[in-house]
Nucleic acid binder design. Structure first.
Lengths: 157, 157
DNA sequence: GCAACCTAGATGACGTGTCAACTATATTAT
DNA sequence: ATAATATAGTTGACACGTCATCTAGGTTGC
């Protein structure tokens, strides 16, 4: 119930800049990847985790890694399966479970997309910053992430 | 056609952190605003620009300010009008034109949402960072934004 | 062994964002 | 004047993400 502390000038620069940057960078990366590889950034994120995990993961592991809601994950995996990027296989040790398996086509898709994507990330962000800014960005993100409410308790007053 | 320069350790920390931070902060801010004010972040952005512009703007001005595609803007404004947050009025000096006007209800909505939103932004980001990090963030965003391709020429090879 | 609870995942409805047309009005060049 | 083009905005189809709800299979306690 206290008075609001509005943002001062530096705070406002940082916040408005943050918003504009994230909006535009996301849109650019998304467009570029979609045009050149036919993948969305979400597809790419799924494929990255799979290919870093010996090409198969339980769905809930994927969801935890990506921090996605399970319904989002479920919808997305269904669409990716329809496009042949992954398959869904029943789990023998847990009747509720689901293995998500990278297909040959999924592997090919990410191997083609990765170099283009990395060069986009470099061009738009990494190569724009000097070493101390890069280090600062890494520290900033770690600090902010560390301060975020864990899981679903967004109402931690 | 040259070999890809993959990300080194600091670059990777910065980039993975950036992705995780933006994903999660956006999701938290969105949830909080939707729950407490019934507005999406997009609604809020529109209302902010309108209220900073004497409560009325041409649609194309709004689109330029937000850097939204015109179809996105059109869809979004239609939905906002249906909820009574804005009205759309024909422009007398340009037959193609459209004035977007903030309604009393829209003004009330943003005035109620703003303090909550600012305190969320503080809690999740601003207050997590020390003054030099805030300054660094402002500079980083300005540098990245300055390096982005202007408009639609994303294919500037 | 059974009830209560928890976890993994699916589903349908709905709001949102993008893309590719499309309409209509203004501007420019000749 | 008029034809070519540019600008302002709309529309429909479709992919995406969220919420609430549901099913089914585990787990725990008694």
């Amino acid at each position: 119930m206290s008075e609001v502390r509005w943002l001062d000038e530096t705070e406002s620069r940082a916040w408005r800049g943050y918003q504009a940057m994230t909006d535009q960078v996301t849109a650019l990366l998304q467009q570029s990847m979609m045009r050149q590889s036919g993948l969305s950034l979400s597809d790419y994120a799924v494929l990255v985790y799979l290919s870093e995990s010996e090409d198969r993961l339980r769905a809930y592991e994927l969801g935890a890694a990506l921090r996605w809601e399970k319904s989002r994950l479920s919808h997305h995996l269904r669409r990716m399966e329809k496009r042949g990027l992954i398959t869904r296989q029943t789990c023998e040790t847990d009747g509720r479970g689901l293995w998500i398996v990278l297909t040959a086509r999924g592997r090919q898709a990410i191997e083609e997309a990765a170099p283009v994507h990395v060069s986009d990330v470099r061009r738009y962000i990494i190569d724009q910053l000097n070493p101390s800014q890069l280090e600062a960005l890494a520290e900033i993100t770690e600090k902010v992430l560390g301060g975020l409410p864990a899981g679903d308790d967004a109402c931690a007053d």
